[in-house]
Design a protein around this nucleic acid. Sequence first.
RNA 1: GGGGCCGUAGCUCAGUUUGGUUAGAGCACUCGACUGUCACUCGAGAGGUCGCGGGUUCGAGCCCCGUCGGCCCCGCCA
Length: 593
Amino acid sequence: MSESALATTHRSHLCGALRAEHAGTHVRLGGWVHRARDLGGLVFVDLRDRAGLVQVSFDPSSAGAMLAAQAASLGAETVILVEGVVAERPAAMRNADMATGSVEVRATALRIVGPAETPAIPVARGKSEQLAAEELRLRHRHLDLRRDELQHNLVLRHRLMQRTRRYLSDAGFLEIETPILTKPTPEGARDYLVPSRVHPGEFYALPQSPQIYKQLLMVSGFDRYFQIARCFRDEDLRADRQPEFTQIDIEASFGAQDDITRLAEGLVRALWAEGNSTVSATIPRMTYADAMERYGIDRPDLRYGMELEDVSEAFRGVEFPFTSAALDADGRVRGIRVAGGATLSRKQLDEIDAIVKSAGARGLLRVKRVNGVLQGAAAKVLDDARASLLRLADGDLGLYLAGADRVTGPALDRVRQDVAQRMGLVPEHVNAFAWITDFPMFERDPQSGALGAVHHPFTAPHPDDVELLDTAPWMARAQAYDLVLNGTELGGGSIRISDPAVQARIFGLLGVDAETARARFGFLLEGLRAGAPPHGGIAFGFDRITMLLAGATSLRDVIAFPKTTTARALFEGAPSPVPAADLKDLHITVEHA
RNA sequence: GGGGCCGUAGCUCAGUUUGGUUAGAGCACUCGACUGUCACUCGAGAGGUCGCGGGUUCGAGCCCCGUCGGCCCCGCCA
């Protein structure tokens, strides 16, 4: 953006954009008083706008005593208009910590246009001062957003959004909006519901994703679609989960998995370039089965090794309470080998144990080799031959869990991540991307045994596994894929079912009878029957990508007006009760607990 | 639905272990001094429903019960 394009009636330049080259220029600035320093004659004001800070000096001998006195009385966060001349500072008075530190503006005029109360939370913060409590930052969001960090995050968000549009548009994708008022789908997450005034007792739902709409756009021949789509899920929140969030939603026709992943990779490269970060030349692929076996989870952190090892054979046939029951029940004993881990203290191991228990597994079996001698509860029951199966070198620590993979895998993933942190194995500035492919079609409910869709019910089965749908559907793989970075899922997608007969069969396996399928997804089925091209797509979590590239630790820091962990908006005060008359119009009565 | 941490001045915190005089500090704020600061400096002042309610006690910021709010995690998030 050119300098002059930002010039307006009230200003000629941006504060934070002034440099030595502007010396001698007469400027008019508008901004917020960041800090003022009154030296008892000479007054300095750090003036802030979107571009940053610049020092404005008020010298009574040149600007007049009145003007200096007025400047001295300015409160923080007051909005002022300043006229003056940019002057290069003498060498001794430069401030290397400021982008504008080689110049200052010598004021000739000052107008207070936006008087401000003393801010409820500080915007200008001392170098060692803590941030205000997050509750207050959310309540006074307009002030918090003035801070440099959040300004940068939202600027980055904007750039990533525009880069997404440019990349996809250049690749022939059409940006098409889909409805916000949609049909409730009792599948998956809880919907946010919106009552209909004109249809008593009926409700819209806010979309959890534009999934069905984008498939219908393929049916309609739009070929390549994208949308930076707002999605809504009424589930409990986390630091990386908000009730309304934004995803980059993509769908394309006449392509296979490789076409989608190639396009998605291109987008990711563009976004990471925009965020001044890097993507390796190729993104490795790993099957779901491989990921689960080697890392216990479908989003492995590949920045370091320490893969899971199956040591069941060391314990098979040994009477040992920790492992016997699990092995008898067709479970396994798996764990990680921590090179040099024998130095971890009892306290540290107890902390790791607490992580394991919070992940739903029983405690860890700890074995270490010190001076050639195996130590730990298992040492007594393992002879040399068995002990050698653990492959522990001197100074190594083995951490093991016994039980069903479903439980031990995710727990060992947590252990692996925690230990990697403790042992300093996580390299900085490394982006370990990976595609995880060949997800299973279904997962079985551990209690009822009923099948549920792993991705969603429109996901196409792997061509090699279609037969399995009749014989052992829980073994069937899907044409589904996730993109993972450093243990975080960035996005996922699939090739969709384009044959209505296959779709009907999948609904059958999921226990959705024909009538229910028609009631819930009739408009999709009707679309498929009208002639659907082979199609598939992917969706990326845009907030999460922005968070990662911004180096933020919470989604709240890359969203202008986020919700709290109880889905409240503290700034505007939503949700809130509504007048009885409004409820009556909506045919709603509220039960009070 | 469950677990953990937190709540004291406008903001950040100390004080809670072991209940006891008038609850402190830094920043911000108000007033005063200061002409090259840039987290300006110096002096003075004002500022408190110790989240809220109840209980125990001669006495509660501190102990007990409940409740509200925020954060983190499990469940949940096709």
